[in-house]
Design a binder for these strands. Structure first.
Length: 269
DNA sequence: ATGCTAACCTGCGCGC
DNA sequence: TGCGCGCAGGTTAGCA
């Protein structure tokens, strides 16, 4: 579900309702997410939530005592409630603010996470992430260097958060289509020119998706409950055997690293 | 070091 | 209708 654009959309949706307010209570109905939710999250109780940031697919909520680190996994989404409502199935966590605004996490598959860290940037999960794809640090020189000698396919390489975080299964296929790069190409064999095209495609694809509010396939929805609309702009993802919008060739579906990849065998070489 | 695999968990759509 | 199967937006741990 949520890749960078969906997480970014979530952050933008929830921030106005939470920032500068005090956290009154964190109600964890089910601690068994990707990792057990630690009791240390309660260090944020009675603290002001000063800022919300995104790092890759992580959401970081900052308080003076430390930060809450959230991840939406495959199937998570967050919702803002302005008054108490009976929790539904898979509503695992509520964060209740001093004005009774509630942030509610729903995650059927429980691959998401809620953790606490005094210094989130030093947390093992965040410390080794690659540069943000929409930042200057994610550029041709950087990516070309990281791909040098890599035997792995370029699809798998750009889905590696230690190289660049935030690019998941949808946007990997979409970015490669826009770059005209075959997803099976060994990462280390791409020319510098093609790497530069890929860098720009990753950035533009993510930006367009953010503008559309993300992609809603199954469970993803924004904090106000509305879906994202980027699905209508997907060029290859989920389009197995359908015609390529550019050349009418049939879109191919292959499996790479246990994940579905979609591409146009004629446009992407 | 690098790269592959299984594993975590629930729901849904499809074919029979 | 119901059942079993395959598949789904992520990521780490563990092993070769």
């Amino acid at each position: 579900m949520p890749e960078l654009p969906e997480v970014e959309t979530t952050c933008r949706g929830i921030s106005p309702y939470l920032i500068k307010k005090n956290i009154q209570k964190i109600e964890v109905r089910n601690h068994q997410l990707r990792w057990p939710v630690p009791t240390t999250v309660n260090k944020c109780i009675n603290q002001q939530l000063t800022d919300i940031q995104r790092r890759g697919k992580y959401i970081i909520m900052e308080c003076e005592a430390g930060s809450l680190i959230w991840h939406l996994g495959m199937s998570g989404h967050m919702r803002i409630l302005n008054k108490e409502k009976t929790p539904n199935k898979h509503d695992h966590v509520d964060m209740i603010m001093n004005d009774q605004t509630i942030l509610r996490l729903n995650d059927p598959r429980k691959f998401g996470a809620l953790l606490f860290a005094k210094e989130p940037k030093l947390h093992p999960l965040l410390a080794n992430l690659g540069p943000e794809p929409l930042s200057e640090q994610f550029n041709t020189a950087y990516l070309y260097q990281r791909l040098t000698n890599k035997q792995q396919s370029i699809k798998q390489a750009i889905m590696d958060s230690h190289i660049v975080p935030g690019v998941g299964n949808i946007y990997a296929s979409e970015s490669l289509f826009r770059s005209k790069i075959n997803p099976k190409t060994k990462a280390g064999r791409l020319s510098k020119i093609r790497v530069s095209i890929l860098v720009e495609s990753v950035k533009s694809t993510l930006k367009l998706a953010i503008e559309a509010g993300g992609t809603s396939l199954r469970d993803f929805s924004q904090a106000d409950g509305k879906p994202g609309y980027f699905k209508q702009q997907l060029m290859v993802y989920g389009r197995k055997d359908q015609q390529c919008y550019q050349c009418n060739q049939q879109i191919k579906h292959i499996i790479q690293g246990q994940r579905a990849t979609y591409y146009c065998p004629k446009c992407q070489t």
